[in-house]
Design a protein around this nucleic acid. Structure first.
Lengths: 220, 220
DNA sequence: GATAGTTTCATACAACTGTTTGAATTGCAA
DNA sequence: TTGCAATTCAAACAGTTGTATGAAACTATC
């Protein structure tokens, strides 16, 4: 136990460097230099480089997931065990988007780190993401309760598309800004959330016919 | 010139290995061993490892982009310079999805390579992707012609969401299969394409009011 | 204030990386 | 066949990486 000073200095320095330069070209030596500690300290306190990365990512994603579930639970309780689909989707994508987007100059280190984690996907992070399924199932359950007429398949596709829009917008936010010549304002986070929720809601509530029978659009 | 045998053996071996094991842990030595050539051959024929990766990726994405534009051009010509939005979106996401999804056991090496490239995102590939903007602008133009009443902002968001759904579905196909316990059939590529196109079309054609004024969903 | 346990440190280690070199080999043209 | 260029090869290079070690410096307890 004791001071914990070195430990947290490493965590802070690592998060900052990974956020700024990505996982690819940040070495342990960079981290300990930034933290002002000895090279051996990382292995002493965390066991290995991968475990350091994992701890950083777990900490942040636990926070996001807790926030998600808090919103979801509150909404379902308020609705007597069943929340409107928009509110569920809002709870799903809101915390993530709020945690990663927003004016670039006031973006927290944590936010920038999570964007990196979303873009680069190194092994220790991938391993953790794979355990996220149980968490997502809770949302699938809530969505099923909100839309009892929908098939499971449609529910899962809706969930998939909602996450797709949120994560892709985070990953490619720079490109979207460039492509739209700044017309798409990614700093207005609540507008982004609203757009994602709106489209995902439509995907989940639109007449099934259109979704199922593709109308076989003139392919070629 | 000459035989070109070594060159193409390297390309094939590299694509196979990257497809199978990812960029992270495939070394030049792995590649030359698989190709049955000398270590120095990569630098002799390609200049560097990154240029080898770049050539692989460029070749495949040029093919996809050409297919996209072919479909787009055909559709616009048939409609006298203006194609229906569904058809445009179909041309945008169809080739990519068709190139990456489909029954796993009959998935081409090229397809698996492109999935990897979509997941891992190493520097040489990222550099190439950044040059894709001009290509996307052509689709933005076609979409504007198809939906003259829509604002540019809405067009770009629709384009962004369409790509989001396609790419995320490719990236996370394994997770979606697991999450849905196999209920979402990712082998039925045309169904996936139809779903993506359908949702993106809704996003682009839905009443603007709903999209713009978020209805301020009960946040908390 | 000696002692036991924790933490820090400089340093070495061992392995792997992409790249280069210069000689050997090959293939083709004169 | 001779000569010249293109290609292949084994070997070494130069650098970096994460990790391990064992001594030194702390810190708190008795």
């Amino acid at each position: 136990m004791a001071s914990d000073h070195t430990r947290s200095a490493i965590l802070a320095a690592a998060e900052r460097l990974y956020a700024d330069r990505g996982f690819g070209d940040v070495t342990l030596r960079d981290i300990v230099a930034e933290a002002g500690v000895n090279l051996a300290a990382v292995n002493y306190h965390f066991g290995s480089k991968d475990e350091l990365i994992a701890e950083l990512f777990v900490t942040r994603s636990i926070a996001t997931n807790r926030e998600r579930l808090r919103e979801l639970k509150a909404a379902e309780e308020q609705g007597g065990g069943r929340a409107p689909i928009e509110v569920i989707l809002h709870a799903l994508v809101g915390p993530t988007l709020r945690g990663c987007l927003g004016p670039e100059n006031q973006r927290s280190t944590a936010a920038r780190f999570m964007i990196r984690a979303s873009i680069e996907s190194v092994p220790p992070i991938r391993r953790i993401k794979n355990r996220e399924i149980d968490h997502l199932r809770k949302f699938a359950g809530a969505m099923r309760r909100a839309l009892p007429d929908r098939s499971d398949v449609d529910i899962y596709w809706g969930l998939n598309f909602a996450l797709a829009m949120a994560h892709h917008t985070i990953r490619e936010s720079e490109r979207l800004t460039k492509l739209s010549e700044g017309k798409c304002d990614l700093d207005d986070v609540e507008d982004v959330v609203a757009r994602v929720v709106s489209v995902a809601t439509m995907a989940l509530t639109a007449g099934r016919a259109e979704t199922k029978a593709p109308a076989r659009v003139a392919a070629r």
